[in-house]
Simulated assay, not measured.
Amino acid sequence: MSAPTSLQVQAFLDAFSLEVSAKAMPALGAEATRIPRGTTISIPWLASEDDDARLAAARRVRELGFEPMPHLSARRIGSRAVLERFLQRAANEAGVAQCLVIAGDLASPAGPFADSACIIKTGLLETSGIRIVAIGGHPEGHPAMRAEERWQVLEHKCRAIEARGMAPMIITQFAFDAGIVLDWLHALRARGIVVPVLVGVPGPASIARLLRYAAMCGVGASASMLARYGISIGRLLGTAGPEVFMDRMAAGLTEDHGLVSPHFFPFGGIAQSLDWIGHYRAQASAACRSQVIQ
């Protein structure tokens, strides 16, 4: 695959989003001037935080000029009333108009919601002013579902969201193999699912930390997959950035892939991810100028 052009890199990076936990809000505030206004900031649901912390994070994101996207972890929500109260406060206090709905990691639901589809069916999202509903995508597969079942569930959720007057979006788990992601995107569009996709990208971090998060999130991290990402299995010290992954994504995307942009998981810190984004942009621009001069 040929190297991506500066325009390809720019197009892919233009609408990047970030995943930032409630406890990382001070770091987000410190770097806010380096992030375009209106950028989507995804706020994960963490068991160590309560709804007040999540709502405070959403308010802070809005104050900084960004779009808050809180996660709703279906199996962790104790009742319909709890969900309704959270959504109403999110709308009233932080102007939340988009969210990510996920099943969550509990084996048994704490309340009436077994999966994200159950939340969509309640009607509470649209009545609370939610306009964009993101759902999870799994290019590397899902431990509990076969491939055909995954596609059926994804199609069903997108149709259900649209039927309720909202716009669906897909956010994928972060991955190490751009080829797998590109193939998944091709299959997604071939099925007629044309919604925007945010592709999960691990921000630069220590290799040990990347592998730790991969294990926690069920992301494939075999020796061959790491090699395609640019990490040698024999070199597990130091840091790694997503240069190879991003190059292959930017070069491989075509108009047929539709709206696709990176969703950064800043495992090594927000500042480090923003440094990397700026450096990557600058490198692509310099390469383009060099080609013009030659």
Rank of each mutant, 00 (worst) to 15 (best):
G165N: 08
V153A: 14
I180F: 01
E162Q: 15
I170F: 01
H186Q: 14
A163T: 09
E162K: 12
I161Q: 04
A187M: 10
A187Q: 14
C158M: 11
G192Q: 02
R191E: 04
R159L: 11
P168I: 04
L185A: 02
R189Q: 08
V153W: 05
I170N: 05
Q173H: 08
I170A: 05
R189P: 08
I180S: 12
C158I: 15
I171G: 11
A187F: 02
R189H: 08
A175D: 15
A178L: 03
I171P: 03
A163K: 14
I170S: 11
F176S: 03
C158G: 05
H186T: 13
A178K: 09
E155L: 05
I170T: 06
I161G: 06
M169Y: 13
A160I: 06
L154K: 03
A178E: 03
H186K: 13
C158K: 00
A163I: 02
R191F: 05
H156M: 12
M169L: 14
A187C: 11
V153N: 12
E155S: 13
I193F: 03
R159K: 15
L185W: 02
R191H: 08
L154G: 07
A167Y: 04
A187H: 12
A160C: 12
L182F: 02
M169T: 06
M166R: 11
A167C: 07
I171M: 14
F176A: 08
R159D: 12
A167L: 08
E155K: 10
I170M: 10
H186S: 13
I171W: 13
D177P: 09
R189Y: 02
D183P: 00
K157G: 01
V181T: 13
D177N: 14
D177V: 09
F174R: 00
M169K: 14
K157W: 04
W184R: 07
